Amino acid sequence: MAAKATHGSEPPVGELLRSIRAHPSRMAEQLAVFAVRHRGPRAARHVAGLRAGHPEASQAELVEAAVEHARRVSVGEGSFVGGPFIWLVPFAFCTALLEQGQLILELAALAGKDPAAPARAAELLVLQGVHPDVPAAERALAGLPAADDAGAGPPKKGGLSGLGGLLWRMARLLGLTGEGTDPPPPRWRVAASWAALGLTLLVGMVVPLVWLPYMGVSYAKAADRLADRAVAFHFGGAGRNRPARRGLHPGVLGATVQAVFSVLLTVGAVFGVLLAGLRIGDSRWPLLLLVVTVLSTVVGALWYRRHRARGGRGGRDGRGDGRGSGR
């Protein structure tokens, strides 16, 4: 894995993506090794913070606090897709995958295991449904290229075809389509999930932020399914004592409001151009295309800047949020 960083800082996701693009068929294994190496220590700190901040909490309550926190972070960090920033989709998906990996590592730590131990990588692959059992996962990990060679080799297919293949692998691994669940979903449901994801990306090219509520719901469901499997794996099938959820998750509700505002803003701009009778030459279409493109870019950039600024004030590190994770 190409992942060098100074102590205390996380290696750039871009380095991980370069390794994945060099060996796309080994994406899941590279992500697992990267997650254990760089998210394992963070998972240990976060679990220590949870225990220190909730000394009276039961094991089941600590598990739910970790799951809820992972759900919030993955929704916030991984939902920036579509719009004029289509090239950021792999970064968003990769970040969400690392957050899912950290959740699995935190649950392992709550079960008394070392989240930074190399053995966790094989377990992560099994829980993600990549391999049927730990021995098979260990054999796959043994065949990974060395860290110095992770980005070597002939260049892989680029352009839209290469990007599409990478997004397909990531979306499947994220659980956005429900594949890999037990029992497996009907084919029509898988096809509908892929269609919804593709439509979200396409519409987001014109109307920014419409993907936020869809991705928020998808990540929340995926985090719950992954947590159920991890709890059954690490705690002997005891299952989760999941509290009943009522109404929309606050993050999803906020994303819905932003999406509605984005739609109204775009529709209002289009109607404004039509009512004013503005044209470029003898046609309205070039002006409409220009207005929608500029508006989408500006709104997307402002949201992304605000989102990153908010993310910079807090982290998933146990040093700052151990006591707040159970909210």
Rank of each mutant, 00 (worst) to 15 (best):
P115K: 13
A117K: 09
P118W: 03
R120N: 06
L124I: 09
D133F: 01
A136T: 12
A136N: 04
L141M: 11
L144E: 07
A147M: 05
A150D: 10
G151F: 02
G153S: 03
P154N: 12
K156H: 09
K157D: 00
G159L: 06
L163I: 02
G165S: 09
L167C: 07
R169L: 11
M170R: 13
A171L: 07
L173V: 13
L174A: 12
L176V: 06
G180T: 11
T181W: 04
P184F: 13
P185W: 10
W188K: 04
W188C: 04
A191F: 12
A192G: 04
S193V: 11
A195L: 11
A195G: 05
L197Y: 15
L197R: 00
G198A: 08
L199M: 05
L199S: 02
L201S: 02
L201D: 01
L202A: 15
V203N: 03
V203K: 07
G204E: 08
V206L: 15
V210L: 05
V217M: 07
A222V: 02
A223Y: 04
A223V: 12
A223C: 11
L226R: 14
D228Q: 10
R229S: 09
A232Q: 03
F233H: 15
H234D: 03
H234W: 13
A238V: 12
R240S: 07
R240L: 09
R245Q: 05
R246A: 13
G247T: 10
P250N: 14
G254L: 15
T256L: 15
V257K: 08
Q258M: 15
A259R: 09
V263C: 08
